[in-house]
Design a protein around this nucleic acid. Structure first.
Length: 305
DNA sequence: GCATGTCAAGTTGTG
DNA sequence: CACAACTTGACATGC
């Protein structure tokens, strides 16, 4: 059975996540920084719990947790750990409650570090920051029980194979908490499923197949072939496949198809997905409304409503 | 109060 | 060569 996932935020539900900036924190003393960060982390932990309860109520089966749940945690000057925050213990206990709730309700949790995490970069400082960020997300993933930390292969720098070789050197040195969760996703400008599949097989890294990116940045594989072959990278590890879907805001005609629409167009749902067991993250601006609608649409298509 | 510009970080493609 | 697109809002600032 398909399960659909919500990405990070809600449109109509009264759930918010707070953040702050290094610039503002740096003008106050350390104890004031930690106080403010503690309030924000506590707020975000409580709202993560509320998010999980809400997706459960809406029949949504997966949730992507926003990267800055604990804002600026790995910043070189602001960085902190939970145990030095005034409310650190409370925050930890709320994350533990999230883990138990998600496990009990079978809500699959994932992370998607943003574009600054680049393991294929030729710049050592970029890679070092990326590893720090991945360790932070692995810590969160462990606390809440998330099994996926999904990233892109990064830049090409004129030579994809050389870039992937740099990636694998770094990958082999990552801590187990990161390696056991790390997945690769085809992107919409550089790396296609065909580029990544041999690499994923060789290193036993699951491939998150983004069908919208594949349509924006196609290769010789059909959607059916890419779905099946990406699925094999999960199956060989005994894990449930994870995919992404979105629809182009401007349609498939003139103009860039890359920006995401509010909802998923029924015509964009691959038919071969309908009877698979897998998680599909819905990348749509209308957030939970789009996930609920897609789920209803698929139920109608399958005659289950 | 409300509108607006800013925010740690990378890479690519466009204007 | 500079800047927007990825994705995206929340928040600080200034009127």
């Amino acid at each position: 059975m398909l399960r659909f996932g919500l990405c990070c935020l809600f449109k109509e539900e009264a759930i918010t996540f707070r953040t702050t900036t290094a610039k503002v924190l740096l003008i106050v003393p350390r104890d004031r920084q930690l106080l403010k960060l503690s309030e924000i982390c506590l707020h975000n932990a409580l709202n993560l719990k509320l998010s999980l309860e809400t997706v459960q109520r809406l029949g949504i089966g997966a949730f992507r947790i926003m990267s800055p749940l604990f804002p600026r945690m790995t910043h070189p000057e602001i960085g902190y750990s939970l145990n030095i925050l005034p409310d650190g213990e409370t925050i930890s206990s709320i994350l533990e409650a999230c883990r138990l709730f998600a496990a009990d309700q079978q809500i699959r949790l994932s992370f998607h570090p943003d574009q600054f995490v680049v393991l294929s970069s030729p710049h050592p400082a970029v890679v070092a920051n990326s590893i720090k960020e991945l360790q932070y997300q692995a810590m969160l993933a462990k606390m809440v029980g998330a099994d996926v930390i999904n990233i892109h292969a990064g830049g090409v720098y004129g030579d994809k194979q050389a870039a992937l070789l740099r990636f694998s050197d770094i990958y082999n040195c990552l801590p187990e908490s990161v390696r056991s969760r790390l997945t690769l996703e085809n992107d919409d400008v550089s790396y296609t499923p065909e580029d990544l599949l041999p690499f994923c097989k060789e290193h036993s890294i699951p491939l998150v197949y983004d069908v919208h990116h594949h349509r924006c940045n196609p290769d010789n594989l059909t959607v059916e072939e890419a779905t099946e072959q990406a699925g094999a990278t999960w199956k060989s590890l005994g894990r449930e496949q994870h995919c992404h879907i979105s629809s182009p805001k401007a349609g498939w005609g003139s103009g860039s198809p890359r920006p995401h629409a509010d909802f998923i167009d029924q015509g964009d749902i691959p038919e071969c997905w309908l009877n698979r067991v897998m998680t599909v993250d819905v990348e749509a601006k209308a957030k939970e409304l789009a996930v609920v609608k897609l789920r209803e649409d698929v139920c109608v298509i399958l005659g289950l409503s």
